[in-house]
Amino acid sequence: MNTENLIAIDVFCAQQEVETSFVLALHERGLVTITQMQMRYFVELEQLPRLEQLARMHYDLDINLEGIEALSHMLERVEGLQRELRELGERLGRYEPGSDT
């Protein structure tokens, strides 16, 4: 397995000053995906921004895991709606004068 794109959870936790149990709890709730290899847990580099965001919610904003779970779903919806709005705006722009090419 390619390990170049993985970061060990204990390394992440030490750098970010978060508990390993917190990351494991996120994994249990399906909010991040972790991989186990030779008794160590890893997370894909691509997921780091997400993991950091969830850690900020918990440690900076005092939001518990249930709250984080609910917020994650709401944020996904918000981002989806924003994306849709942007796309509709672009589609609408095609019919505005001077944008027929």
Partner: peptide, 12 residues
């Protein structure tokens, strides 16, 4: 206020 206004909770 941070819970209300944090950029993580108010994307874009």
């Amino acid at each position: 206020l941070a819970r209300k206004l944090h950029p993580d909770l108010n994307p874009n």
